[in-house]
Design a protein around this nucleic acid. Structure first.
Lengths: 137, 137
DNA sequence: GTAACTGCAAAATATTTGCATCCTT
DNA sequence: AAGGATGCAAATATTTTGCAGTTAC
């Protein structure tokens, strides 16, 4: 069974055209995708709204995560492991290349721990590095 | 001379109503402000567009910085020090409270260093912690 | 067959641009 | 006086919602 169907089954999601196409778009790339990238990758076969809803479903189920950014818009990437419904565990650093604009997950770089002042309860931690990627050097 | 005028003068900006009002809004709060917060704080005296342009000017001059977020929209906070035109040096952790929704700068918490794989050139690093703030515990 | 998913229309929200006018220096 | 800043109108972009028709199981 294909990866795509495995993922859908694992998360108890029905097997629809748009879910398969969006998942395939993620599996075929190393980088994080913006909503617009996904429309293009799926060859405009699906309505914009359907893609928004599909992405939201995937986020709810722990299949993809969003990457924070101050400048560019929201980007999405596959969760590599351990994410379950309603609870993301992404613990890796994200990298945004200022030259090519691409966002990627550095799956092998763990977010270092940080200690906050007394009274703060820590949930999720995001770390986003901007710079120049190896391809653009 | 007021803080506000000192800041404007330091960055060679003309002394206008909207710039004074926006700066005062930042000086009167501990938390990061969204565009909409600023409209409210300045009592809708200024056009939405003017506030966008004022904020962009402040970012360009190194007076405020934006805080990345995956969910909520862009938020802005004063740079405490060391930022100069075209170059931000914010090295502190940002905190977003999931209970009250407020975003704040933890000026005393430095972003820990992280080493990336060979080939990546590091520019800016952002760290955003989500959780529950002391007031909401 | 039924609940869930999709497409379309439209609303709501966010941000940018052009231009004429006004204000700061 | 001159250049920059502002307000208004409008364009553009992004995301959400309602609803009727379609599809997966």
């Amino acid at each position: 069974m294909s990866d795509v169907l495995t993922i859908l089954k694992k998360h108890h999601l029905s097997n629809t055209d748009s879910r398969r196409a969006v998942l395939e778009a993620f599996l075929q790339t190393e980088i994080a995708l913006a909503h617009q990238d996904i429309e293009r990758e799926t060859k405009e076969r699906f309505d914009r709204v359907t893609i928004y809803r599909t992405l939201q479903t995937f986020i709810d189920k722990g299949i993809v995560h969003t990457i924070p950014s101050a400048d560019s818009g929201t980007r999405y990437a596959l969760c590599r492991e351990n994410c379950s419904e309603g609870h993301h565990h992404d613990n890796h650093v994200h990298f945004i290349c200022d030259a090519c604009g691409r966002t990627s997950c550095l799956d092998d770089v763990a977010i270092p721990s940080v200690s906050l002042p007394k009274g703060y309860k820590v949930g999720k931690i995001d770390m986003v590095v901007n710079g120049v990627c190896p391809e653009c050097q």
